[in-house]
Amino acid sequence: MYIAGLDIGSQSTCAVIWGSGRIWAFSVLPSGVNPQKRGEEALAEALTKSGLTLKDLDAIIATGYGRYQVEAHRQVSEISCQAKGVHFFFPQVRTVIDLGGQDSKVILVDPRTGRVLDFLMNDKCAAGTGRFLELMARVLEIELEDYGKLITQGKEDLVLANTCAVFAESEVVGLIAQGKERADIARAVCKAVAQRVVQLAERMGLAEPIAITGGVARNRGVLHFLEREIGASLLVPEEPLLTAALGACLLEG
């Protein structure tokens, strides 16, 4: 039995092909403006990699914000999928922090089943999401990957007073104008994101072990400050973008 999980997020679209207890292939593409088309492309790519065709699939399960825009046998919220996917990699995990492009979520997971016990989402504001890091990277004229490197070079402990993306942008511009080092500003940006996420997570009550998923999980800068703020190390799946799509498969299979 082969199942495809399709996670259509705001930033990336991920397809996973699952069967006989293992991942056969996966693909990750940027979501772009046409989630339906991108979903089909991601699925086609994953199928090609696995050597299977659409006819071989027993079910397609869609998740993510664009889940209702693609043809699928069933739609499941990304919250349940994320929990199940992480549970596959780290069965002991009790909290998942998912930092996506447009929102952040904290999910409490039952370690016995991988089911969701409770969750909290922040989506009204870009602060604490990948979008915030992207916006600030643009102002700083750096690539997203540079954050990790830059935080090790920073010396001055700058603080961004505003976690609102719009205000923070002008604050960063102000810091640049004051001649502050780019590395120090990058550090402050990562710290601001981490603090915002921790605020959300603490409302929920963090239970260890904690895993982190989503695009921001790859940002070593934010990860560093998150671990420092939380006071615990975070488990990062090898492919933090595919957990929701994998979870979709597991919920069906």
Binding site: Q75, S77, S80, F119, D123, K124
Partner: peptide, 19 residues
């Protein structure tokens, strides 16, 4: 309001209730 987000929350909540 962020009406688009009600769907995800309600869907996930229903999934919790379903167990």
């Amino acid at each position: 309001n962020t009406q688009e987000q009600w769907r995800t929350r309600l869907e996930a909540f229903a999934e919790i209730l379903r167990g």
